[in-house]
């Protein structure tokens, strides 16, 4: 039996559609991704004032490139990465699935899973796909 787990459970919720977990400051409403566990960069409030904030991983591509060399075997080269301007504000970088992504293209987050490891765990990662 395969068990599905988020590789980054603090950052990625395995719901349909997926959600990514950032932070919001109760005092100044400053939004961040990822969530900052230490304090607010905008107003200096302590971590007690920071709440989780769930973002929908949808937005538009601000910059995109194809990576030809990479120090790890995964992801296999070539692969596309982009800076994505999330609809709710913060910028996020991520891997883009599919062909011919362009600046300005709309994207949404999808879950991709690894082959089950020796313990039957399949690890879930966030990727982006052209809408």
């Amino acid at each position: 039996m395969t068990i599905l787990r988020s590789r980054y459970p603090d950052l990625l919720k395995l719901v349909d559609p997926p959600l990514i977990v950032g932070g919001i400051c109760r005092l100044c409403d400053y939004l961040t991704f990822p969530r900052d566990p230490y304090g607010c960069e905008n107003c200096g409030s302590t971590s007690e004032e920071l709440d989780s904030y769930e973002f929908s991983p949808t937005g538009s591509i601000q910059a995109v490139v194809t990576v030809h060399r990479h120090h790890n075997p995964q992801p296999e080269v070539p692969f596309n990465v982009a800076v994505i301007n999330l609809s709710e504000g913060p910028l996020i970088k991520g891997i883009i699935e599919g062909n011919n992504p362009k600046v300005g293209s709309l994207v949404k987050g999808i879950i991709v899973t690894s082959k089950p490891d020796s313990e039957g765990i399949s690890w879930a990662d966030l990727r982006f796909r052209l809408v």
Partner: peptide, 10 residues
């Protein structure tokens, strides 16, 4: 402070 990029963006 973790991120989702899994080392893909160096």
């Amino acid at each position: 402070i973790n991120n989702l990029e899994a080392g893909a963006i160096v």
